[in-house]
Simulated scan of single mutants.
Amino acid sequence: MTLEHHAPQIPVFERRLGSWQIAVSRDGYGTEQLRAAYDACAPRWDRKIGRLGFPVAYREVVRHAALGLTAEDEAPVKVLDCGVGTGAMSLALAGEMSEAFDLSAVDISPVMLEEASANLRRAGVGCRADLADISALPYASESFDFVMCAHALEHLADPETALADMCRVLKPGGRLLLVTTRKSVFGAFVQLKWRTHRFDAAMVHRQLQHQGLEDLTALQVGSGRWTRFWSTAVVGRKPAIYETGASGDVEHAA
């Protein structure tokens, strides 16, 4: 999980009344605040998300997002989990993949990384775990066949910077899966507690389209009430030809 080094401004309310525009925002957590918060809750995190049904919901999401996922030259599929937390999304993928895959994971919280590494090790899943910011991933361009990010993007002051870097490390033809907190009553509770953005599927679609991804598909996050109304998920594919300018804006994608 990651954040800009300064506290982001999180929009809470915006309304236009004639020539007036009324907007309310809130300071988000700074990097050290967020790291400390997730370090503190990491030992209880599995129990919390388990009660809400997210491990099962994540399996349903990756079942569709990773269907038929393959790598070139019969090599293991290379996967990156951005904001791995305690490893729930990676464990869900391991439960759905019929073949072994090469997993890397990043998080801003060292305690979350320790929990994820232990959980994955117990499940027999090897993992390279790096303490890193998803806005500046420590990997070469076009390194991964599948990039996942669950409930980390909403913490960022500039989500598109992180999306651009996820697309940078994604191989042409590779897939990117985003799961984010959605605009809902449940999402409002999360926003108040964690000072996050909330997204709907249309907003995520626009952001991924801006990055040049194709074949965008919205996925339901499980069948339980909590997970469905708490989260939204979209998967997209990086085109075979993908060029960006110095600013990171997509110049050509085909």
Rank of each mutant, 00 (worst) to 15 (best):
H210T: 10
V24H: 08
L156P: 03
E251S: 03
A157W: 09
H205C: 11
A152H: 07
C127M: 05
G212M: 05
Q207L: 15
T70S: 13
A164P: 01
L156S: 03
H6Q: 13
E142S: 13
R15S: 05
S135I: 00
L69Q: 04
H5I: 05
Q21M: 06
S104C: 15
R26G: 06
G30L: 06
L192G: 12
N119T: 01
R206G: 11
T70E: 11
D130R: 11
H155G: 00
L17Q: 09
A164H: 04
Y242H: 15
L192P: 00
A57H: 01
L93H: 04
W20L: 13
V111P: 05
V250C: 15
R128Q: 14
H205N: 10
D107K: 11
D165A: 07
A162K: 04
Y38W: 10
H64V: 02
H64I: 00
E99D: 12
P8V: 10
Y139P: 06
A254V: 11
V190H: 08
F13E: 10
H197A: 03
R168P: 08
L131W: 08
G174W: 09
H5Y: 06
Q33Y: 05
Q33H: 09
A123R: 10
V12M: 12
Q9M: 13
R228K: 12
K238S: 00
A202S: 13
P55T: 01
P43L: 06
A36W: 03
Y58P: 01
D73W: 09
L137M: 08
G83F: 11
A88W: 10
A140S: 13
A253R: 14
H5M: 12
G236E: 01
D249V: 09
A37F: 04
A42S: 08
M1Y: 13
F229V: 00
R44P: 00
D102V: 07
C127S: 01
V234P: 01
S90F: 07
R44I: 01
A240V: 09
T244F: 09
R35W: 05
G245T: 09
H210R: 14
A118W: 03
H155Q: 10
T161H: 07
A75F: 07
Q211H: 11
F13R: 11
G236A: 04
I108L: 15
H210I: 00
S247Y: 12
A164C: 10
G245F: 13
E74R: 14
E60D: 09
D102P: 03
H252K: 12
S143E: 10
A157Q: 15
K78R: 15
V190L: 01
A36R: 14
G124Q: 04
D249G: 02
S231V: 01
V56S: 00
F101N: 10
D145I: 01
F13W: 15
H6K: 10
D145E: 10
A42Q: 05
V190W: 07
R15C: 08
Q21G: 11
D165M: 06
T31A: 12
F186D: 03
A42V: 03
S117C: 08
V147W: 09
D81R: 08
R175W: 01
A132P: 05
P159T: 02
A218C: 15
R35D: 04
E4G: 14
I49P: 01
V106A: 12
T196R: 04
L178A: 04
F199I: 03
R59D: 03
